[in-house]
């Protein structure tokens, strides 16, 4: 009777702990979402007007970073994304930066920011709709998602990544064999 009670209590504690941790992961913006696939067919335009879909980068670890020229935290974050793209491209990281902004404003900032990855644009409504489909209900920027080579959403982030957070996240999902 006593042993059964102890087992019961221990099991209840474990279940409660797991529930608490699950809630913690759920709350965290960068939480992994098991089994959630990147929605197909989300179409945006390059700055040259050509249409693009995220499926083009299937096979790479894809970091999608929504930004805008009017978004100061976005502008702060971009230099570290540029650095990450340069450092991890050979290991299979591809960053893509959809801009919730006017294409001319984006063009004017692309050079000064030294953006070394594809920048996409679209009408404000369509970009907000795409972000909502990707899990950004409030519509705030910057907003990033990390997508595995086979199209699974691995993490979401609203607000800037710290350099350490971003490095840890990318390192955790890139093959360890090749040196950066």
């Amino acid at each position: 009777m006593r042993a059964r009670s102890i087992i019961l209590i221990a099991a209840a504690g474990l279940i409660a702990g797991a529930a608490g941790y699950g809630f913690y992961r759920y709350q965290h913006g960068g939480a992994a979402v098991a089994g959630e696939t990147l929605p197909a067919g989300l179409e945006m335009s390059g700055l040259d007007g050509k249409p693009h879909r995220f499926e083009e980068w299937r096979g790479k670890l894809l970091l999608v970073n929504f930004w805008a020229t009017w978004c100061t935290p976005c502008l702060h974050e971009i230099p570290q994304l540029v650095k990450m793209q340069k450092q991890y491209a050979a290991r299979g990281l591809q960053i893509v930066g959809p801009a919730v902004d006017d294409p001319d404003a984006v063009r004017s900032m692309q050079g000064p920011l030294g953006i070394n990855y594809p920048v996409l644009t679209g009408s404000p409504d369509s970009m907000i709709d795409i972000m909502e489909k990707l899990g950004n209900g409030p519509g705030g920027l910057p907003f990033s998602i990390l997508v595995s080579a086979d199209g699974q959403i691995l993490a979401r982030q609203s607000g800037e990544f710290t350099p350490a957070e971003l490095t840890q996240l990318v390192e955790a999902h890139l093959p360890a064999s090749a040196a950066p």
């Binding site: 221990a10 504690g13 409660a16 913690y24």
Partner: peptide
């Protein structure tokens, strides 16, 4: 035990 389990999370 339930509280101890839930609290950290």
């Amino acid at each position: 035990a339930l509280l101890l389990g839930l609290c950290p999370g």
